[in-house]
Simulated scan of single mutants.
Amino acid sequence: MTWMMPSETARQERVWMAFPPERSSIGHTAAETHEARTAWAAVAHAVLEFEPVTMVVDPPDPAAARTYLSSDIELVEAPLDDAWMRDIGPTFVTGDDGRLGGVDWVFNGWGQQDWATWDKDSKVGAEVVRQAGAELIQSTMVNEGGGIQVDGLGTVLVTETVQLDKFRNPELSKADVEAELARTIGATQVIWLPRGLTRDSQDLGTRGHVDIVAAIPSPGVLLVHSQRNPEHPDFQVTADIISMLAGTRDAQGRAWEIVEVPAPETLRDELDWVDYSYINHLVVNGGVIACSFDDPADTEARRILEQAYPGRKVVTVDARPIFARGGGIHCITQHQPAV
């Protein structure tokens, strides 16, 4: 059996999400939890315009969830620590015989972060695979869905600071990681970014997820986050990444057409430099759920996404409450391909 992770533009069956539980890193107070739940619900309802949504809910929370979510959103109960479904959920793949599989990576709180808990979240991947009726593909590698971007043809983008993180996979070499990505998601060409964005590399981040840095909207094309203000530390970070990517090729041997997507003009929030990124969007059937930031760059980013995904309707959701908690729209969703 050969498994392959399809492109995110392939036809989808549904999108999986998780409802923010009480007393998590997403919300320490009732007001913070309400803000998070409102933001997560806005994304879920945006997706619902295009395809079904299944929301995993902590067992104490179904009644609360229904006050935020329409009856069209299916609820499934499972214990939760947090609500970043891209990372705690499985990575869905399809077999060469047409079967649906789900890769259950080891999840350890983004490299054993001292603010994270993951005893419950580490079991969510296998439970979602079961609920989806997919075949379980168990991996012993620590990885998260936000740490990989694929073209569905064998190319995968990763970052050295994630898969080779000493708090994730201290014993693994690049060759080991590449072999496991080949076995689980069909990767034949692994492109290693040196790092991720500045904010995401700090204490409350993931240490460099690729899904706020680069995306592959179609074969041979890369959307790459570009910080154009030299005051922001990501100015040099993204320039280096773009230069590095220009020297790589995809699994078919093609040089990339690189489309630079400007960062929002907003540079800081109350904590630090922001890592606001339009790259962290979700592709759905006939649409794209994109981040907005009430920023002058929102309009240009939307135009770029409309051109990158012709024939799809771009719907924007204010992602500032999500980014304030450490991620974006792609981070809180996990798509299940149709088979």
Score class of each variant (00 low, 15 high):
S243C: 14
Q189I: 10
W115P: 05
P264N: 02
D58R: 05
R207W: 13
L75T: 03
E8R: 06
I185W: 02
V56N: 02
R23Q: 15
D58I: 06
E135M: 14
F167K: 15
D61K: 13
V156I: 10
I242N: 03
Y278Q: 01
A301I: 10
I88N: 01
A263H: 09
E51I: 06
I304R: 08
A319Q: 00
Q307M: 13
A10W: 13
P217Q: 00
H45L: 11
G327M: 02
Q131L: 15
H330I: 05
S24A: 09
G311E: 01
Q131K: 13
G327Q: 00
N229C: 08
G247W: 08
W16V: 06
V47P: 01
S226W: 12
T188S: 11
R37N: 03
Q163E: 13
T155D: 01
D119G: 13
V261L: 11
M141W: 04
F50Q: 04
G326S: 06
G287R: 01
F50V: 01
L100A: 08
G253K: 03
E265C: 11
E178Q: 13
A30G: 14
D151I: 02
T159D: 01
M141G: 02
S173N: 07
T54Q: 09
T299H: 15
L153T: 12
I148A: 09
V224R: 04
M55I: 07
V283C: 07
D275W: 13
L181V: 06
D58Q: 08
E306G: 07
D72L: 12
A175C: 11
V162G: 04
T155Q: 00
A175R: 13
E13R: 15
P262Y: 08
D119F: 11
L222P: 00
M17D: 02
T67W: 08
A64M: 15
E32I: 11
N285E: 12
V57Q: 07
A30E: 15
I73G: 03
G109E: 04
P217L: 03
G152H: 04
R199L: 07
F19H: 00
V106L: 12
A30C: 10
R268H: 14
G133P: 03
P264L: 00
R207A: 14
I289K: 02
V288I: 10
E300M: 14
G27L: 00
F19L: 03
W192I: 09
N143I: 15
A214Q: 06
P59N: 09
N169G: 08
T266G: 09
R23E: 15
P310Q: 05
A301K: 08
L305I: 12
S7L: 02
V158Y: 06
F323L: 08
T316E: 10
R99Y: 08
E260G: 07
V190E: 02
G152T: 10
I322E: 04
L153M: 13
Q12Y: 08
S292Q: 06
A182M: 10
A36V: 03
K313Q: 15
K120V: 11
G186V: 06
N229P: 03
D269A: 03
G220C: 02
S7Y: 03
E49S: 13
A46M: 04
T117C: 14
H34Q: 13
A65K: 03
I258H: 06
